[in-house]
Amino acid sequence: MPEAAAFAEYVIEFRQAGYVVPSKTPRSILHEVSLGVTDGEVLAILGRSGSGKTSLVKLINRILGFTSGDVLVGGTSVSEWNLIQLRRGIGYVIQEIGLFPHLTVRDNVCIVPELERWPLDRIHRRFLEVMALVGLNADEFGNRYPRQLSGGQRQRVGVARALAADPRILLMDEPFGALDPITRAELQQVFLDLSRRVRKTIVLVTHDLREALLLGTRVVLLHAGRVVASASPEEFLKLQQPEVREFVAASELRLGHIP
């Protein structure tokens, strides 16, 4: 990481960042988002479909490039970072997981350390560590292929892969969205456990209010490409903005009363 990293106030910072889909008919997705994520924070980004939450996360590892304002990682604009170095320092977990079907669990998990040319024994030790972190038996699962795993096991491998190179930042886009409710609750526990044991700055995208309140140390609500609320989980439910009330009401309609 560049020099500035040590002095930066925020690990991730959006400064009036905007994103417009570059095409013949430009579509504006994010408007003047200003947001800072401090070291060790778990920022849960809430929003309904189309609110721009996925795009927001993708601006951080530059899967999408911001089109106005600035996005900084470790105090340096992502546009100035070497793209490969930027991404190697950011773990990325998505709903579709995206495991490599032609590689075993072990090779999937160890791919970034391998790309980084770690010594073999260190890769092996790290493999055992991250498998333990996500609650998978390394001996039992190491040589299996993704197609031989259940959905929940696959996502555990996805999380292990994102953690393998010990990145400072972890981005998770609806990581448990495709799982059944029981497996989902199980993985949320894995996540809680893990976020306490390893100190990472985590940005978690979800449309599930309960998940955001359970896992986040801070909850942000995105509405039509703008940040409309930012509060601790305890404070969030007390907020009076219409967008928050509406979102909470819609969630309660679906899930019952949220304490």
Binding site: I84, R87, Y92, I94, E96, G98, F100, L115
Partner: peptide, 27 residues
Amino acid sequence: IEPAILEAAEAMGMSGSQVMFRVRLPL
């Protein structure tokens, strides 16, 4: 190839040729 696989490869900081030779070609 499934877009999620390519996105994962890209997001982990693979270069263009690494995506080609480690992901696209084997698949």
